[in-house]
């Protein structure tokens, strides 16, 4: 199944300008922790593409354009964008320590191990939490939220109008055959 830029636009329409995330990040910045180093937008987007390769199902095509469209818009929001950048920075710190490489520089097969080693697979998302919880919130769940609230991501599972997507009031009335139309 193919993801499109229209899916990305739909996901952005569904979850908007990241005000929910801003709520968490603003609280994070109230503490005395040092300002994290801020990676470039290009590096952040490359990292999100690399994370998406791990967390998205293999039968999807069109992943790169979808992630670029969605992640660029989310990165452009002030508070939430800062949270994403910081999550990339702490993920890189982790892989530097364990693998002597930034996350994007790792072989694809090692990236999944790196995220699991960090605990991002079993962590609860938390924008103010541990490294694993922040990576889960700003990178892993950011991408899963975009995918599974989009029409194509929903159809993968069997629902054309997933929660968060303004897909109208026809599909709830239709039977399972509607998925094949």
């Amino acid at each position: 199944m193919e993801l499109t830029r229209r899916d990305a636009v739909a996901a952005l329409a569904a979850i908007g300008g990241a005000g929910g995330a801003a709520y968490g990040y603003s609280r994070l910045r109230d503490d005395d922790s040092p300002e994290p180093s801020s990676p470039s937008d290009e590096h952040v987007l490359d990292t999100m593409q690399a994370v998406a390769e791990v967390v998205y199902p293999s039968e999807l095509s069109g992943r790169e354009a979808f992630v670029e469209e969605f992640a660029s818009a989310r990165l452009a929001t002030d508070d939430h964008g800062a949270g994403i950048r910081e999550a990339v920075a702490v993920l890189d710190d982790h892989t530097d320590t364990w693998y002597d490489e930034q996350f994007v520089s790792l072989p694809a097969v090692v990236r999944e191990n790196a995220l699991e080693n960090l605990g991002a697979d079993v962590a609860d998302e938390d924008p103010t939490g541990s490294t694993a919880e922040r990576v889960r919130y700003y990178l892993v769940n950011e991408l899963l939220l975009a995918l599974y609230s989009s029409p194509t991501g929903g159809k993968l599972v069997g629902i054309e109008n997933p929660q968060g997507h303004p897909g109208g009031i026809e599909s709830y009335q239709q039977g399972p055959d509607a998925l094949d139309r």
Partner: peptide, 30 residues
């Protein structure tokens, strides 16, 4: 009209990702 899991909410709390997650979502939903 909303019994059982919402796939997107399940995905955000799951301990799997990639193909394993998609498999679980398909199993859980519908």
């Amino acid at each position: 009209n909303y019994d059982g899991p919402s796939p997107v909410e399940t995905a955000l709390s799951a301990d799997e990702w990639g193909d394993d997650l998609l498999g679980r979502l398909r199993e859980d939903y519908g």
